[in-house]
Simulated assay, not measured.
Amino acid sequence: MTTTTGPATLTPSIIGQAEKHHTAVLTRALAGTTLDEKQWITLNQTLAAGEPVERSAQIARIAGMTQWNPADVDTALAALLDSGLLRAESGSQVEVTEAGKTLAGKVRTESGVIVAAAYGAVAPADLATAARVLATITARMAEELARA
């Protein structure tokens, strides 16, 4: 009988593996859509705003959150506008269309089954601790990257 024990401590390798698995789940859910990861995150974050958002501020926010080049986020946003998943509002604001909301719901439902099962295997208190630890690590890395 083989028993599996968890790692002794959190490492960049463990974080990287978790991130790669999250990406694989998302890739599976995006199969058959026209979206890539950058477009999905841009759509999802625009939807999360719950109201029209100023385009340049949204690009800057997503670029900061992901560490992507703002031009790449702008390209993703432009593709979403071209596909009709986002629409331009008055001035320089953008918002998610009904088609964008429908597609986001489909992707969330498909990926959510796998994610819920994985996260459901962990005690809520442990998830809360992991969230605090990862938020702290991310904030410290962001500070270091800002210094460069």
Rank of each mutant, 00 (worst) to 15 (best):
A142D: 09
Y119F: 14
A76N: 04
P52I: 05
A104T: 02
A139W: 02
A79P: 01
I14V: 13
D126N: 10
V113N: 11
L43D: 03
Q39T: 02
A148K: 13
A128G: 06
M65Q: 13
A29Y: 02
I41C: 05
G100I: 06
T42H: 06
E95K: 09
E37N: 09
I62T: 03
M141P: 13
A117R: 07
G32H: 04
S56M: 11
I137Q: 05
N44V: 05
G120S: 04
A29N: 00
R140W: 07
I59D: 00
V94D: 04
T129E: 15
D74A: 06
L77D: 09
T46V: 07
P70R: 05
T34H: 10
E89L: 10
V53M: 12
T11L: 03
I41G: 09
T2L: 14
E89G: 14
G120L: 00
T102S: 08
G84H: 01
G16W: 03
I114N: 13
A29C: 05
E95N: 12
V94L: 01
L127F: 00
A57Q: 13
T136H: 07
A116K: 01
I137P: 05
R28T: 05
G84S: 04
R55D: 12
A18G: 10
L30R: 01
V94C: 10
L10H: 04
A117E: 12
R87V: 15
E54V: 06
I137K: 04
E54K: 07
G6Y: 04
A60T: 06
L145D: 01
V53H: 06
T5R: 15
T42V: 06
S111R: 05
